[in-house]
Design a protein around this nucleic acid. Structure first.
Lengths: 119, 119
DNA sequence: TGTACATTTAACTCATCGGTTATGTAACCG
DNA sequence: CGGTTACATAACCGATGAGTTAAATGTACA
């Protein structure tokens, strides 16, 4: 993985288990055991995923007796949202072009309505 | 990395070189050599990065004589933007809480204005 | 045809990832 | 004290990632 913040955030998100953990944490703090419960995976595996999320600053961990409650820290997500926002205009115009294309196709179909095509 | 679309998109974005390539492509098609130019990296390395981006559907490639022009395909970015949008409310309320906190700190400062603190 | 250019593929190295089992640590509880 | 609960660390493994150099492919062009 890289050292820069954005890269480690993206890398942390590139795993369905970790995204599921984040989704779970979006509805409130949880202990490691609680987070592990939905997965068919050993605790150390979960522990490692949490460490990745922690190093990406996507979560923080407290201490309460023998539990280490995890909480979501959304700041890196905001950074990603901002990064991706630069491309919004681009993908919107892409879909506009697609619209145009489909509209033209449709018009063509109309003009050639008597000539049914294959497929 | 993973097989699911979202994971491979995130994984593809978890590399500064690849993000730079996308940024370059946002301003128009480019050949592999043109894309490689800003980097101190061998051509095969760039070729591999492009393959990653292609498999993540972030770019497509045409053929024009000996050139293989690359173009940005923003659809996966849109998917990510939608995924992350679910967390928007969360990080906004996080920052609200931060605001609250700072506001309270300020109020406290005011009340204790005659007692300057250390630091 | 031969050569130059653009790009990919092959083969390799080294580090990191995602998982495992086994062991360690720290706090609670009787 | 000893046992249980909650979690982390260590050591290992196979797969993948990111880079390299060297060689192959494909197209243009004299």
């Amino acid at each position: 993985m890289q050292h820069d913040q954005l890269s480690s955030t993206f890398a942390a998100l590139a795993d369905p288990t970790r995204r599921a953990i984040l989704a779970r944490l979006a509805s409130g703090e949880a202990s490691v055991t609680q987070l592990a419960e939905p997965f068919e995976m050993s605790m150390p595996a979960i522990s490692k995923h949490l460490k990745v999320l922690e190093r990406a600053r996507l979560i923080t961990r407290g201490r309460e007796a023998q539990w280490r409650p995890c909480r979501l820290e959304a700041a890196p997500l905001k950074d990603i949202a901002e990064w991706i926002e630069h491309y919004r205009q681009f993908w919107e115009q892409s879909f506009d072009r697609l619209d145009d294309y489909l509209r033209k196709l449709k018009a063509k179909d109309k003009r050639h309505a008597r000539k049914p095509r294959k497929n």
